[in-house]
Design a protein around this nucleic acid. Structure first.
Length: 277
DNA sequence: CCTATCACCTGCAGGC
DNA sequence: TGCCTGCAGGTGATAG
């Protein structure tokens, strides 16, 4: 379940491993993966072009390909693999194959077919495209401030965890890191967001950035399904302090960690360290 | 405008 | 063994 750190790890891995190859062929094996074009149009717009770079906004991976951006959201289980085009692959779960003139192939693998790709012309602002309609500032965007978070969230009738998961204000946090951030803030995930003061939003931003930065440095988390295209896998999960640790002792006070559903997501918290405000 | 819920998919765990 | 149910979660569409 890639969140910002995992997507960033994939971005860095592809930048390092794949580099700047030229596209020779494109095969879509499950059409709905490509959201805004037909498979024929998608292929036609990529043939013969070179991948110039790799970017990321929130959980979106962005391939910079001459005059277009290929935008890719991995959703729950999307993964990329770089392999020789002659190597065998998992036909059941591999949905897009991009072959390069050097004989290599970029393969998009997605067990549950939730991921989506979009192709947009580079001469139009990416943030105005459909895929980014509900995507706000990236967590590490310097324009994102505690004041902005306060202005956006304070009037709303949602709880802390919902705010962290709301991509339209601050993009990049998913279910796992939302729990870690709540724990780091010593706040219950169901704390009403209007109870947070300005300084709490400063803390929220600080802890979010600290935790995601640490996760990126560790190569991203794997709980169940994530692997980067280099096979980097699972190194950060030992560092999780609260998520998926039901019935284990809180690292701060020893109390048994609890699990409950918050905002329809499985949520882990320490009932002692994280009181509702 | 706002929040809540469902649909999209598949694999896997647990109950019987 | 095998069938059935529930669960996992990101996002967009739909409902209220």
């Amino acid at each position: 379940m890639p969140e910002l750190p995992e997507v960033e790890t994939v971005r860095r891995t592809l930048e390092y491993q794949l580099g700047n190859p030229i596209i020779e062929d494109v095969e879509i094996r499950w059409n709905p993966i490509v959201d805004n074009l037909t498979p024929i149009e998608f292929r036609a717009q990529l043939l013969g072009k070179r991948i110039d770079g790799y970017h990321r906004i929130g959980k979106y991976l962005i391939f910079d390909i001459e005059d277009v951006f290929l935008v890719s959201h991995l959703r729950m289980e999307g993964k990329y693999y770089v392999e020789p085009k002659t190597a065998p692959y998992d036909h059941k779960h591999t949905h897009v194959l991009i072959t390069f003139t050097d004989g290599r192939q970029l393969r998009y693998h997605d067990t549950r077919k939730f991921g989506r790709m979009y192709l947009y012309p580079k001469d139009q602002p990416l943030k105005q495209q459909k895929a980014f309609a509900n995507v706000g500032y990236d967590v590490f965007d310097e324009a994102l401030t505690d004041t902005y978070l306060y202005q956006q969230f304070h009037p709303r009738k949602i709880v802390l965890k919902q705010a962290l998961l709301d991509q339209s204000v601050m993009a990049g946090v998913g279910n796992i890191y939302a729990d870690e951030i709540c724990f780091a803030m010593r706040m219950h995930p169901e704390t009403k967001i209007y109870h947070l003061r300005k300084k709490d939003f400063a803390k929220l931003l600080e802890e979010t950035r600290r935790i995601l930065r640490g996760a990126i440095q560790s190569g991203g988390t794997t709980i169940r399904s994530y692997t980067s295209s280099l096979g980097v896998d699972g190194r950060f999960q030992l560092k999780l302090r609260i998520h998926a640790k039901e019935h284990q002792a809180c690292s701060l006070c020893g109390t048994m960690i609890k699990k409950k559903t918050v905002a329809t997501r499985g949520t882990y918290y320490c009932p002692v360290c994280q009181r509702k405000k």
